[in-house]
Each structure stands twice: as structure tokens, then as C-alpha cells.
Design a protein around this nucleic acid. Structure first.
Length: 218
DNA sequence: AACCAGGAGAGAG
DNA sequence: CTCTCTCATGGT
């Protein structure tokens, strides 16, 4: 079975096992951007706390973020960690992003624009493109690389680069926003239930039959 | 009580 | 281009 076929199969199996995901967990496109920055190397649980505190402080708004003193913003997002960096990144994002123009830009231009911003790397940019603006692009994260490595290579991760993994998934699923959205969301769900870093729960794993890592385990 | 979490940037080699 | 270090809180 080719990797391309395997990815299509993966989407079917995960979809059947976990059902339709509702993603990104945010009320507005702007909140998606905030969450994408706050969740950098941070568990979503802690991001929820930070966003909740921002909402309470009325900070879920670009102008409010810009008007707030640094220490106020820092204090609100503290539960998400890296609070000094992230406070700067949020302010920088609010200042320099051509937010309302992104939806009209081509995918390539929009991505280049986001990547040019300090604090917005590939995963954050792609999360924003896909989940805030509905652009057909695939988001690669640590979960994706781990699951990909285990399933297709029998290793705990893959040596493929970010762009290589992204391309493989996009070739398999096509430029279909709904599928790309669902695939990433299902991979995150799957990682939490059956593919944690230290404790893979291979029993009952919906990918067991097609997973090379599963054969090595037991 | 170490280890990990839906990364990104800067610097070195 | 590939490592390595830093940033930092909170859950397990």
C-alpha cells in the first residue's frame, strides 16, 4: 500500500472511529489566530485558560490587545507559558497583519505574508490559513509527524521535513478544505487517545491493522 | 519529580 | 540545511 493510499485509508478509519470533529475550537477567525500563537509548544488545555482570561479582560480584540499595557496582556496569557514572547507576538500580529486582506489573497501570497511575521512559523501560519480562513492547506504538527512515522515507517517520528509531510498529505487528500481540516483534527484526537509519545495505547487502535509501529509493540 | 505540551527564532557548524 | 539553545507555565 502506497503512502498516498494509506493516508486516504487513515482518514476513513479515524473518521469512523472518532466521528466528525468540530474544529478549530474558537468563536471567530481572530480567536483562531490568537489560539494558534498561544498553543505554540503548549497544551491546548492551558491555552483555553489563557483565552478565557483574555475574554474576561476584554482582550480578544486586536485594538484591545494593542492598547493594553504589556504586563496586563502578559498576566492574562500567563497560563499558556512563554508569556513574554507570546504577548509580543500577539501585539506584533495585531500591528502588522493585513488581516482583512488575507481572505482575498491567493493561498501562496497569504502564506508568504503570514510567514514574514515574527512569531508566525509554518504550523501557526497554516493553522490560521486553514482554520481561520478556510484555505486548502494541511497543518503539520508534532502529532502528525509522530503518527506518520509510526504508521508508515515504524519509527517514533519521521525524518521528512515539514513541507514534505505537508505535500504528501495534500497530494493524498487534494486541495479539499474539509478533508484537510478533518484529517488534522482527527490526528490530534488520535494522538491523545492512542498515540501518545510515551504511552501508545495500541489496544483498540483504529489504525492497528495498517500501522507498522503496532507490529513492533505487541 | 522528571517529562511533556497542537513552535519559532537566533546562532553555530 | 541541520543541530542546539531559549523561552515558561501547568498537567501527569
Amino acid at each position: 500500500m502506497s503512502v498516498r493510499t494509506g493516508i486516504v485509508r487513515m482518514l476513513e478509519l479515524l473518521s469512523k472511529a472518532y466521528g466528525r470533529q468540530k474544529w478549530w475550537p474558537a468563536d471567530t477567525p481572530f480567536e483562531v489566530c490568537v489560539g494558534a500563537i498561544l498553543t505554540q509548544n503548549t497544551s491546548w488545555k492551558n491555552v483555553e485558560k489563557a483565552i478565557s482570561r483574555m475574554r474576561k479582560e476584554g482582550l480578544l480584540d486586536a485594538s484591545a490587545i494593542l492598547n493594553a499595557p504589556a504586563h496586563v496582556l502578559e498576566d492574562a496569557i500567563r497560563p499558556a507559558g512563554f508569556y513574554k514572547q507570546k504577548a509580543q507576538r500577539l501585539k506584533h500580529f495585531c500591528t502588522h497583519t493585513y488581516f482583512n486582506g488575507i481572505s482575498q489573497m491567493s493561498l501562496q501570497d497569504a502564506r508568504a505574508h503570514l510567514l514574514s511575521l515574527k512569531g508566525i512559523g509554518r504550523e501557526t501560519a497554516d493553522s490560521i490559513l486553514l482554520y481561520a480562513f478556510g484555505k486548502p492547506i494541511f497543518v503539520v504538527d508534532a502529532y502528525t509527524k509522530r503518527i506518520y512515522g509510526r504508521v508508515f515507517e515504524g519509527k517514533d517520528s519521521t525524518a521528512l521535513s515539514y513541507e514534505e509531510v505537508r505535500t504528501v498529505f495534500e497530494k493524498a487528500l487534494g486541495k479539499n478544505t474539509r478533508k484537510l481540516n478533518e484529517m488534522h483534527a482527527l490526528l490530534v484526537e488520535h494522538a491523545k487517545l492512542h498515540c501518545k509519545k510515551s504511552f501508545p495505547k495500541c489496544q483498540g487502535c483504529p489504525l492497528l491493522k495498517m500501522c507498522n509501529f503496532g507490529r513492533n509493540q505487541a
